[in-house]
Amino acid sequence: MSAARKKLRVATTSLAGCFGCHMSLLDIDERLVELLEYIELDASPLTDKKHVGPCDLGIVEGGLCNAENVHVLREFRKHCKILVAFGACAVNGGLPAQRNHLDIRDCLQTVYLTGLGVERGFIPNDPELPLPLAQVHPLHDVVKIDYFLPGCPPSAEAIWQFLTDLVAGRTPQLGHGLIHYD
């Protein structure tokens, strides 16, 4: 890796995820300092920049559970040369997708109206709230995804391997032990 090379511009986001994948990214620990010699961050929960600009790499955690998720994903696809599905939920919908065989109306009614311990409940309908999708989708249902990094979350080692491969201009290869679905 040559430090003189132009830094890769990287954006990250969490859609229908739990931020666990982002936490795992931080788990690469002091190597973050080394990584910052090769990348610079654009929009990301870590920078608080809200809208993604032209980037070399977009890292997307979480699947698609509402209309806003789809909007943000499309924005990422438009601006990022390489787009990565980061973690189990981005790859196959993950835990949120386990509602997919249920009717969304029944889900909302149970959670906000009839569920155990709910009193004077109502289904939130503020226009600011993004509308939920009938089913949760993995990212590749909606846009082209260039790389998949599975795991709940992907381990720090897998993330490091993936990023160092990309920074060095290699096709990322996760060997055995780094591919995990759990």
Binding site: A85, V91, N92, G93, A97, N100, H101, Q135, P138, H140, D141, I145, Y147, F148, L149, P150, L174, I179
Partner: peptide
């Protein structure tokens, strides 16, 4: 590393 196809759920 992924299901590749659109999942049927």
């Amino acid at each position: 590393v992924s299901g590749h196809y659109n999942p049927l759920f």
